[in-house]
Write a protein that binds this DNA or RNA. Structure first.
Length: 521
DNA sequence: GGACGGGACTCAGAAACCTAAAA
DNA sequence: ATTTTAGGTTTCTGAGTCCCGTC
């Protein structure tokens, strides 16, 4: 392990405001109950969710009650959610929303400006660090406020109270010469081998939470570039990697055969590797943790259906080589539905196998490589030198969509999606009726794309998977400003690609990173 | 000297926010 | 021209991956 930095100083982290109690009460089975300030804070957070589906979820509300009822007067500590009347809190939230709604435009504006100002002031203090003598931004300089735990999917802890983080929970990382900001911190360390500015342990989930530097910092910039360089190495070695996997598929060594089969799924279907998960987390799987119930073999075709990361549904059909089908058949037959298909395989073994083929290769690199390659292929599938910007832009989005589909980056469509589609269709009909052919064609494409992206989230692949150099090169080739393809913050994130195009911000460096990711030890 | 678990890092969609297009 | 709405962008923090130190 070598050092990320030689000198590091910052002003610690910003803590959220204390909750100001208003004295609101609840009724339990019709009887008045006073609330402690903390209980009131919890009830208020619950009320904030009053119009969401979360509050309809019995696990959510019963988890909430578990933490909330502990703070009630002894007589009420066994109260269930349905026995408690939160209507005063619900009304309060409604009132606040109505007040906000009825506010004059000027008032709204001035309030927004005020918020922005105070945020800027806090950012000036907490949002920057000095790393090796250079000022850089900090990403998440505000400590997470207390609230209800909003786990994804069927997380067993959803609705539980996530307690407030206080200064003595937080460990700071600073260089030896910097004096820590005033107050009592849990600890101050000088860990040159770590990138984090501060961390604490979440009291509910017991997971570590970190404060990181912004993506524009030289450290992050060089790591980001290194990630895509590593993905390119997959491409260069793909034939060799695949022949090693094919070799493994036929192996008489059971462990080797299972590892190879998992690698097939990772390579060809873009599955994540799937680490083991705890009991108190949502039940999701990846390639190595697939269960029999997730695999359906029908002759030469195999269907994979399961919940992946963030409980996003996965559904892919494949016609794999016979060796894969054979292995899958052997590993699923005679097992119960909830048994692991690859009972001998752990993610470490997969990564060990992969890095034995190409040093540094791990499972997740396949997703980066294939997403990038997919986008690249779509981009160059058509000649755009003489097209209009809008056509180029759509083509860029097509490439993005193809990568998102490969990665299975889904979203829940907005509530207004259907209604919005109708409007688009109306506009299209109108254009057709009025005989404006060009406009009709544009709208047609808009409708088509709108439908095809209904369940897909394009941002994630753009931000994390597609090598920005691919878009940069294509934009240069067809004569399109890459600022039309990337949002401001992504331009900043990817400023390592072409510093001259970068959106600059006073006081924040956008110079290219030094070639080595880390300092020498 | 392998395996294992904690810790550090990257990736993820929902929600909040903001701005540009539509009415 | 002004207000409303839509949709793109940013923020937030939860959920993964994987490495490294330890036993």
């Amino acid at each position: 392990m070598s050092a990320y930095w030689e000198t590091l100083s910052h002003n610690g982290v910003n803590f959220p405001e204390e909750y100001v109690p208003s004295g609101l009460t609840i009724k339990v089975n019709g009887a008045e109950a006073q609330l402690t300030p903390l209980a009131e804070e919890m009830a208020y957070h619950l009320a904030k969710k009053k119009d969401t589906p979360y509050i309809q979820d019995p696990v959510f509300t019963s988890n909430f009650m578990k933490d909330f009822s502990k703070l009630l007067p002894p007589a009420y500590r066994r109260a269930t959610y349905s026995e408690v009347d939160f209507s005063r809190f619900f009304n309060q939230v409604d009132q606040e929303r109505a007040d906000k709604e009825s506010m004059s435009k000027e008032k709204k504006k001035s309030l927004a400006a005020k918020r922005k100002n105070s945020r800027e002031a806090l950012k000036a203090r907490y949002g920057r660090a000095t790393v090796d003598g250079k000022e850089v931004e900090i990403a998440n300089w505000m400590v997470e406020p207390p609230g209800l735990f909003m786990g994804r999917g069927q997380h067993p802890l959803r609705g539980s109270w996530k307690p407030r983080v206080t200064q003595d929970d937080v460990i700071l990382n600073l260089d030896e010469k910097t004096t820590a900001p005033a107050g009592k911190w849990k600890q101050v360390v000088h860990d040159h081998n770590s990138m984090w500015m501060a961390k604490w342990v979440d009291k509910l989930t017991e997971k570590e939470k970190y404060v990181w530097l912004h993506e524009t910092s030289p450290i992050q910039q060089s790591r980001n570039m290194a990630k895509y360089d590593k993905a390119q190495a997959v491409g260069k070695n793909l034939d060799r990697i695949r022949s090693k996997i094919e070799e493994g598929l036929e192996s008489n060594d059971e462990v080797a055969a299972q590892v190879a089969t998992v690698c097939y799924l990772i390579d060809r279907l873009g599955m994540r590797v799937g680490d083991e998960k705890d009991e108190d987390e949502a039940d999701t799987v990846g390639a190595s943790t697939l269960r029999v119930e997730h695999v359906q073999i029908d002759g030469p075709t195999v269907e994979f259906k399961f919940l992946g990361k963030d409980s996003v549904p996965w559904l892919k059909k494949d016609t794999p080589p016979p060796a894969v089908v054979r292995n899958l058949k052997r590993l699923t037959s005679g097992k119960s539905q909830d048994a692991e298909v690859f009972h001998h395989v752990s993610s470490q073994m997969v990564n060990q196998f992969l890095s034995s083929i190409v040093p540094g290769l791990s499972a997740k690199v396949f997703r980066t490589y294939h997403a990038t390659a997919t986008a690249d292929e779509v981009l160059h599938s058509k000649n755009f030198s003489h097209a209009e910007d809008l056509d180029k832009l759509y083509h860029a989005k097509e490439a993005n969509l193809a990568a998102a589909v490969f990665c299975n980056h889904q979203r829940t469509p907005p509530k207004t999606w259907e209604q919005s589609l109708e409007k688009k269709k109306e506009r299209l009909e109108l254009a057709r009726a009025s005989g404006s052919e060009a406009r009709a064609q544009k709208l047609e494409r808009e409708v088509d794309f709108y439908v095809r992206t209904k369940n897909y989230n394009l941002n994630t692949s753009m931000k994390n998977y597609i090598d920005p150099r691919v878009y940069k090169k294509w934009c240069d080739e067809v004569g399109l400003e890459w600022a039309k393809v990337y949002s401001k913050s992504l331009q900043k994130k990817f400023s390592w690609v072409s510093p001259e195009d970068a959106v600059s911000e006073p006081g924040v460096g956008v110079s290219p990173p030094a070639s080595g990711a880390k300092h020498s030890p």
